[in-house]
């Protein structure tokens, strides 16, 4: 039986893993119970700064602490990180202060809270900021490993985590194989490459199984780092498969699909089909229902794969 877990739990675990470093501090905006920074707060209240329901302040308190030698991890819902976008832009990214921002509950998969809580544009907006690394891991194991790696970086980051549980893919993985900026090839095929992030990585694996039943052999890539994009891996997929599909629980404008498209047009080219939220807001629904409503689930990835192949 596949273990199920939410990526936000991996984030919470990572903060505890990092606690031995006395310079690591955690910033909260009244959502620690949800983003899972609460475990750190319970264990290390003296190194946890409550910023109340004030995301703009939180980002810049983090900047001030980063400029004073600390390693701040700040979290809130993905949607509310956007409220502090200009703080991230002008006060964090521009002076290149290593504040690590985590937006949990990203995407329509967030579910029944409805469209006000379903960020579909966070990856796009943070990807536009110079100096900022953008991550969206697919399971709790990789989230935990990537979060701990962030503490060793010298520049800021944005990581999206998800509220709801998805299959765990990396329980037995060698941690060294999970590195910022390096995509992971989960399945090796040569007809089409499905490049996915976050909750759609497991959907892409399902899609690859469905495709295999029709005799189509797909590669599946977990592109947990959107920026910097692993362009070398994209090039390999183009050469080997000649057709690309991207899959993300995010607007088709500006996210992983756009990142891959930007790479393709400037390098080795292949037909690209983008599976993503079709430039519309979400609504209340269960996580799995939302994947269908938004045309993100495995069957839509299968359709996109066939279309990409037909365009070769």
């Amino acid at each position: 039986m596949t273990r199920m877990a939410a990526t936000r739990d991996g984030y919470g675990q990572a903060l505890l893993d990092l606690a031995d470093n006395p310079k690591v501090v955690v910033l909260e905006a009244d959502l620690g119970k949800s983003t899972k920074s609460l475990h750190f707060r319970k264990a290390h209240p003296e190194r946890t700064v409550s910023c109340g329901i004030g995301e703009q302040n939180m980002l810049l308190v983090g900047a001030g602490m980063a400029a004073s030698g600390y390693i701040p991890f700040a979290s809130t819902f993905a949607i509310f990180t956007e409220r502090a976008f200009e703080q991230m832009r002008n006060g964090v990214a521009r002076p290149n202060l290593a504040v690590h921002l985590c937006g949990s509950h990203g995407g329509t998969h967030t579910g029944t809270d409805g469209s006000s809580a379903q960020s579909i544009e966070d990856l796009a907006v943070f990807r536009t900021l110079p100096n900022v690394t953008v991550l969206h891991p697919c399971d709790d194991v990789s989230t935990r490993i990537l979060t701990t790696r962030l503490a060793g970086t010298k520049s800021p980051s944005y990581m999206r985590t998800a509220r709801n549980k998805t299959p765990v893919l990396y329980d037995d993985i060698d941690p060294d194989s999970i590195q910022i900026g390096k995509g992971i090839e989960l399945k090796d095929g040569n007809d089409v490459a499905i490049i996915a992030c976050g909750v759609l990585v497991s959907e892409s694996l399902k899609a690859a199984d469905m495709l295999m039943q029709e005799g189509i052999n797909a590669s599946v890539i977990d592109m947990h780092t959107l920026k910097p994009l692993d362009g070398q891996l994209v090039d390999q997929m183009v050469e080997r498969c000649g057709a690309i599909v991207t899959a993300e629980d995010h607007n088709v404008i500006g996210g992983l699909g756009s990142a891959v498209a930007e790479h393709l047009v400037a390098n080795k080219f292949a037909p690209l089909e983008m599976v993503g939220v079709p430039d519309r807001f979400g609504e209340s629904g269960q996580a799995d229902e939302m994947l269908d409503v938004m045309k993100l689930s495995a069957k839509y990835i299968v359709e996109a794969a066939k279309k990409a192949i037909s365009r070769k």
Binding site: V25, E46, R47, V49, Q56, N57, M58, L59, L60, V61, G62, A63, G64, M65, A66, A67, S68, G69, Y70, P72, E86, Q87, N90, G91, R94, P95
Partner: peptide, 25 residues
């Protein structure tokens, strides 16, 4: 220069971060 300002309403938060760090130190 201790903070890259220019966008209003940001410096007090940054100062709070500096003050919090000083207290932790």
């Amino acid at each position: 220069v201790d903070f890259s300002a220019g966008s209003l309403g940001m410096g007090l938060s940054f100062g709070m971060g500096c003050a919090t760090a000083a207290r932790l130190d």
